[in-house]
Amino acid sequence: MPVQTAEPLIAATTAPTIVGFSSVEMKYPDGTIALSGVDLDIAPGEFVSVVGPSGCGKSTLLRLASGLEHASSGEVDVATDRIGYVFQDATLLPWRSVERNVELLAELHGVPSAERKAKAKAAIGLTDLTGFEKHLPKQLSGGMKMRTSLARALTLDPELFLFDEPFGALDEITRERLNDELIRLFAERRFAGLFITHSVSEAVYLSTRVVVMSGRPGGIVAEFEVPFPMPRDPEIRYSAEFAALTGEVHHALRKGYSA
């Protein structure tokens, strides 16, 4: 990464980014080109949602940011190693209680037992799981599982949070509750977020910026700043401004499909 020294001045004058993609192309070993020409910078304190047709490379974007995958060309720069990654599936270990699941990541990072327990307790409190510490995953509803997954990621105090359609499998009411919960966490913790969803209203409601991607090979076709103040007022969902903005995003998405 630090090899190039020819053109640092321009980059240095822009706002700090926590994760930056520049002309990223991702070609999987089987030849599938999942992403091409992707430029995206996310600053600390930003919460960016990505919407796009399925198969357009949204998950690939997160895999690149997390280091699970490496770009075949272009650059992905991540300025932190404290990354929380929440998958669509809660990926809880079924033999561990909620509490022990929440402790897992700190355990993998070698955090001493006492500190780990304290962090888990705090994260369980933040996600409103108190009282369910001893429950096993099979005793939990989908929403509770997802909260456990969130709590687990929170124990690492992430500076960058990656979400891959985390609430996609949940019913509408649970989903809205968790959206509000996430906004509260974001307002308190001020991590940077990169959130994948296929719900336009969820994207607009949660984020400071919405990015629209087009179909294969995936690229960014539109970006929208979301002007509503954080933390969001739940009532904003029913306002005319909100409807207008989701309309615009929908429109861009539709155009991306036909492109």
Binding site: L68, Y85, T91, L108, H109
Partner: peptide
């Protein structure tokens, strides 16, 4: 997914 979680960390 669980494998990836372990790899990630």
């Amino acid at each position: 997914g669980q494998r990836e979680l372990f790899r990630l960390h």
